[in-house]
Computed example of a mutant assay.
Amino acid sequence: MNSIGTGLAAIDWHDRRADVYLSRPEKRNAMTVPLMNDLITAFERVDADEDVRSVTLLGEGPVFSAGMDLTMMRNRVEPDAEIDRDVFPRLLEAIEETRQPVVAGIKRAAPAGAFELTLPCDLRVIGRRAKYGLLETKLGTFPHGGGTQRLPRLVGLSKAKEIVLTGEFIDPEAAADMGLVHEVVDTDTVDERAKAVADELGENAPLGLRNAKDALNAALEMPLEQGLAYERQLGYELDDTRDYREGFEARLEDRKPEFRGE
Rank of each mutant, 00 (worst) to 15 (best):
L58T: 07
L58N: 09
D69H: 12
L70T: 12
M73D: 04
R74I: 05
N75E: 15
A81Y: 03
E82S: 13
I83P: 00
V87W: 08
V87F: 09
V87Y: 04
F88R: 08
L92D: 00
I95D: 05
E97I: 06
E97D: 13
R99K: 15
P101Y: 01
P101W: 03
V103Y: 05
G105E: 00
I106K: 01
A109W: 11
A109C: 07
A112H: 03
G113H: 15
G113K: 09
A114M: 06
E116H: 04
L119Q: 02
P120I: 00
L123P: 06
G127E: 04
G127P: 12
R128F: 00
R128N: 08
R129L: 06
A130Q: 01
Y132G: 00
E136D: 13
T137L: 00
K138L: 14
G145C: 06
G147Q: 07
T148I: 14
P152V: 08
L154M: 13
V155I: 15
K159R: 15
A160Q: 05
A160I: 07
K161L: 13
E162S: 09
V164W: 01
L165Q: 12
T166P: 10
T166H: 12
I170G: 03
A174G: 03
A174N: 09
A176L: 13
D177A: 15
V181E: 03
V181H: 04
V184K: 09
T187A: 12
T189G: 04
A194I: 05
V197R: 00
V197Q: 01
D199P: 11
